[in-house]
Design a protein around this nucleic acid. Sequence first.
DNA 1: CTGATGGGTTGATGTAAATCAATGCGGTCA
DNA 2: TGACCGCATTGATTTACATCAACCCATCAG
Lengths: 275, 275
Amino acid sequence: MSGYFGAGTRAPESELEIIMSDMPSCQFESRPRRIVIGSGGVQADFCASCSVRPTSVCSVIEPSDISRLAEVAVETIISPGRGFIEEGAPATDFFNVTSGTVKLFKALPDGRRQITGFAAPGHFLGLAVSDSYAFGAEAIDTVRVCRFSREKMGELLDDFPKLERRLLEEASNELVAAQNQMLLLGRKTARERVASFLLDQMQAGLLPGQPPPSGGRLHLPMTRGDIADYLGLTIETVSRTLSWMRAQGMIEVGKGYAITIVSTPKLEVLAAGNS
Amino acid sequence: MSGYFGAGTRAPESELEIIMSDMPSCQFESRPRRIVIGSGGVQADFCASCSVRPTSVCSVIEPSDISRLAEVAVETIISPGRGFIEEGAPATDFFNVTSGTVKLFKALPDGRRQITGFAAPGHFLGLAVSDSYAFGAEAIDTVRVCRFSREKMGELLDDFPKLERRLLEEASNELVAAQNQMLLLGRKTARERVASFLLDQMQAGLLPGQPPPSGGRLHLPMTRGDIADYLGLTIETVSRTLSWMRAQGMIEVGKGYAITIVSTPKLEVLAAGNS
DNA sequence: CTGATGGGTTGATGTAAATCAATGCGGTCA
DNA sequence: TGACCGCATTGATTTACATCAACCCATCAG
């Protein structure tokens, strides 16, 4: 299988490219269609004005060197439901999420799927030693990413040692999150899993970037199915558990993707492992 | 709580220290007793003669700089069942396993435990951005580790950029393993989990270091309880599943910790997700 | 308007794995 | 020598969650 982003067909750098979906729900049936907007040439303030730079790995690049960064970055817009990293495909690029939410997942041959994480703005994607991606990635809502070719990234790493240290930090953080998730998947009950998830989402919303949720109000961009695949449950169990939490006065379930946390302490007791 | 290896009480570098267990099965009831063998002073060939150096992060240090490594490393022997990293304790040191097997785990307040990985010789421990350990570590059999203080490690990283890149590689590898484990814990059946585990152990044995297992013969150092805590199952289910595999002619279960893989293909079909 | 489609909730039923329980076996220690 | 303990195996029973199924409600295309 050829690279998902073949070097020969790559769009000129620093242009804006858009990966459209012909059918919002299909995945990898066809190669993403690419529309290049912009007209080539490097925009010097491309990275300087980036909203997620302060919280992303790019923050370690000094303002004076920002142009180096902009030279190798290609901004890409991905429409909802569209996959842009295919598990097992040759790993040609790294990504930095600048807006929207991405789901990362692994799948079994028969279709069972485990979402290994959700990537919010500022998140760095593609860390893998192997020459192929160990996971797939799909846009949940409309997503913007900065794309770096592996090759170019290597040059950056050589020139900016701080970047390497920052990536190590990023990887370590992910490792800690992964260990927490293993504990959740291996040893927590359904109620504990959902409680942990809601608290994590709350926590994630409090971080810089993203509108800060006030009054325990959460806007979850993912479907019940995504939550189920993330927590190792079924859609029905997630739905039932949320209903049970509502009945217990822990949360309020709004229309669509809104959930309000009414009692953080109750959820914390649950998440810590008291049935 | 004070550091597990308080700076004030630290043994002189490059000596051999031994953490003994008064009671083999107890964990963290008391601080490890330390016996310093050796008499101080740096042994120049300490790292040069290290059996796991070729496969560990230390391999990136040039032979000419080996003494720098030996200066900051303290070899420690840990007796079976003894914990040497406590979850939540201040993270003061990094470790490199040189012999034996370590289990890494996280626990819930009520005692439920998830083993997040087994660390074999060559494995690097302690990657965490936080100032406290996100996981605990305990020796399964007699374990030897090289211990580096966080502080000294920082200096090494400054002086040897290659080391940093190697650590990033190590972290990326662990991330891939963690993602695989999430898929296993979230979506695989008991049989699939045990099959995956046996194949992984086989694979790990084939890597450099460790005696290569011949004829599918495995020597698992961990108990059924450890396997259960690693796979998110109970002891009984692990035992029953192994018995079932034996009945199917997939494996042979020897006395003690010996298991022989009779039919790798059958296990692979299972592990890939066919019931 | 109308049928199709995707997401969500809730109820009835099934089942894989947990729990409870008994037994054996090889150390170790008094 | 016998009592004890950790580890493992196997059987009987329970249960948390999955599965199967019905239904509601938006949205969207024709």
